[in-house]
Simulated assay, not measured.
Amino acid sequence: MLQFLVGTLVSLVSIGLHALATVVAIGFARSAGLRHTARPRSHLIGVMMATAVVLMVAHMLEVLVWAATYGIVGATAVENGLLYFAFVNYTTLGYGDVTPVREWRLIGPLTAMNGVLLFGWSAAVLFEVLRKTLDHLEAAKAPGFTKS
């Protein structure tokens, strides 16, 4: 039961970090995406790249939180590489070359479940930023468009 409690708490921290990153990414995308530009393709690429970078930083911070948790609870030996173990679990890569101690063997699947959820969330954010930016760029071409 302790594994589920710890996994749930760390997942909530990760979700909170991701929510914050989403707010930052969308705020940036809105302000940058609404600018009138003479080079719409380059502008779109810049908005998408910046959004992706913010989300990737969030994922890396989330992996760091999982790695720290592994160290705190003693889920695996430190010499096995806590950060590596966290990345393998979070990304569902699953090499299997580092395994948790028996008492914490559910922490990997809980981490993977969190990572899958947050990667899906990131994909949805990227798609929405792309859609909104494209909508704005199309509207900017229309006659009578006023900069807002």
Rank of each mutant, 00 (worst) to 15 (best):
G16P: 10
R35Y: 05
E79H: 13
R30L: 09
S42Q: 15
L44T: 03
F87A: 07
L64N: 10
G33A: 05
L55W: 05
W66G: 02
T22P: 04
I45C: 07
V88E: 15
L55V: 07
T91W: 02
L93R: 12
F87E: 03
H36R: 15
G33S: 04
H36S: 15
I45L: 15
E62L: 10
V73N: 06
A58Q: 07
V65K: 02
Y70L: 12
T92F: 09
A50K: 09
L34K: 14
F28D: 08
G16A: 11
A25T: 01
H59M: 12
G71V: 02
H18F: 13
S42K: 13
T51I: 05
G16E: 06
Y70H: 05
V54D: 04
A32I: 02
R39C: 06
L83M: 08
G46S: 13
A19R: 13
A75D: 01
Y70C: 02
T92Q: 07
M49N: 09
L83A: 03
A19C: 13
L55I: 10
A32N: 03
G27Y: 00
G74S: 05
R35A: 15
I45K: 10
G81R: 00
V57Q: 04
V23A: 13
H18K: 10
T22A: 14
F87D: 00
L93M: 12
A68P: 07
W66L: 11
L20C: 14
E79S: 15
S31T: 14
A58T: 08
F87I: 09
A86M: 00
T92L: 10
E79D: 14
V63A: 14
V65L: 13
A67Y: 00
A38F: 13
I72Y: 10
V63C: 11
L93H: 12
L17W: 06
L61Q: 07
G16H: 04
L83D: 00
N80I: 04
L34S: 15
T92Y: 05
G81I: 00
V88W: 09
T37P: 06
T92A: 13
G74W: 08
G81A: 03
F85K: 00
A25V: 01
A77K: 13
M48Q: 10
Y70F: 15
A32S: 09
T76C: 13
M48Y: 03
T91A: 09
A50I: 12
T37F: 09
P40S: 00
T37L: 09
G71D: 02
V57Y: 04
